[in-house]
Every structure is written in structure tokens, then in C-alpha cells.
Amino acid sequence: MKFLIAVGSQEFSEPTLRVGMQVAKAFKAAVTIAYVGPKISKFSASQVRFTQERMEEWEFDRPGVEVLEWAFAFLADNNYIAPTTIEAGFSKNTLVQTSGNRCEVYLQGTVCKDVNLILRNGDIIAELRDEVQRGKYDVTIIGGSQKKGMAHDLVQYIDSSIFIVKNYNQEQSYSLLLPVNDSPHTPKAVKYGVRVAQAFDIKVNLITVSKTESFGEGYTQASNRASKLMRRVGIDHEHRYKTGDPVMIIKNEAGNNHIIVMGASTKNPLLKFFAGSKPLKVMEDCQCPILIVK
């Protein structure tokens, strides 16, 4: 599997990187950590590149290198990269320009397969979307404090699953909230939920919500399958059936001490754009980390 973790700054991205690496470790995934710098107008691209070359002669790093340097230090401190790589240190010279606005450095991973650090310039949504298409990532992990509406746009436009690390507090104990219904994405969401629960060693709260009093056959079958899987892998879990507005119920259940894992909407993109979807609404309303599985 392949994970993409987007970081913005040392100040705000520490929880994103910490949670992202912990989950990636559970999946034994290859990880790419990406920083996206400001968009450079095509009019000025060569002048900016030229100036940055001059700046390097004055021993100034291009913006974003310090964020990658911090990410390297984090990986080294937590032994996510091989000792030989740590000993060699973060050499700026190893940043390889792979296209006009993309630089990359490869690090040998330990618990994760590979770790790449990349630096991009441009519109953050467009760059992450391009990176996901290019690297065929399974999960993209971003922080919740990023630009307003960014998470919403990423969920809409990026092909991979999205994990938004919103208001994550390392000191707090979390449970995993896993809404289960007859949606085609539910089985995959349950599998991802198992891995995340194992990564954090937490209890899973399965929840099935129906707008009416009756729960259809699809709902009950899906929830039985999910419970069975939890039992089989030995995860402490509980299953509840609730009636009412799914978004409100999930929001109330989640509070601020759950990690939500749910399947993406199957509505067509145009309808999602105008009418929204349950996962989008849950993501906007809830104040806790959420993984939307596609």
C-alpha cells in the first residue's frame, strides 16, 4: 500500500505526521511526505527558479526544505528510517528535481517500506491530486487545520481515501467509530478500521444508523459481517443500532474522543458537488480525526 502525508509546517503538522506514520506502520505502507509551497505564476517561473539558484549560493534553502528537514528529524527520532540513512543525515543535495515543480529525496524505511520526502510548488489541491495520480496512493493524510475548505475539496477531487487528522491530541484516549451500512464502500472501510484500531490499540464502536425504525436486510448483513470480523481479529468492539439523522447521530457519538472511519459516498460527483454527501457533512461537522475510505 502507499500513503501520502501532506505537511504544512513544523508548527502545525506534527500530529498529522505522527498519526500518519503510526497508521502507515500498521498497514506496512510505503510513505511519501509532501510539502507544497506557493504557486509560481508561469510568467515568472524561470525568474523565480533563477533567483532560487542565486539564493542557494548564499546558503539559503528554497522554502519548504526546512519542513522536509524537520520531517527527516521526526522520522529519525522515531526510528522510521534505517540507521544508515539517519547517520548520513538530511543532505539537501539529495533533493532530486523530478519535474518542473517537484523535488524528491528517497530515504530507506524500517517499519514502513520506503519513505520519500517531496517538495512541490503550486496550488495545494492540484499538486496533491497530481501526486496521488502519479504515485497511485491508497490513502492521503492531511491536517485539519489546513486552509479552510481544503479537506472538503480533497475529498471531492482526490481518488485515494482521505484521512483528515483534525484536532488530534496525543494525550487523549480515543475509540474508533465505524458507521456501517449497505454502502459498497463499507466492507473496505471495515477492513481499514481494523488496521487503524490495531495501530492505536483502541476499541471499536460499530454503529448502524437508519432514518426509519426498520433496518433493511443490507444493513443487518453488513453490521453482522463487521462484528464477525472484529471478533475474528480479536478487537474489543460494541455494536449499536440507532434511528434518526445519520450525520447528527455520528457527530454526537463521535464527540471529540473518536477516530471516525467511514466509506465514501457513492453519489455521482455532480450531485455531491451541489447536494453534498454524508461523509462530507460528517467531516465538516465533527471535531475529531476522520478517515473517508474510497
Binding site: 505564476s41 510568467f43 515568472s44 525568474q47 523565480v48 522554502p63 519548504g64
Partner: peptide, 12 residues
Amino acid sequence: ASPTCMIIHSSG
């Protein structure tokens, strides 16, 4: 507005 504005913005 101009390459000069973009150059200083690229400094972050």
C-alpha cells in the same frame, strides 16, 4: 503582478 512580486513571494 510582476516577476519581482512573485520572486519575493517565493521566499515564503
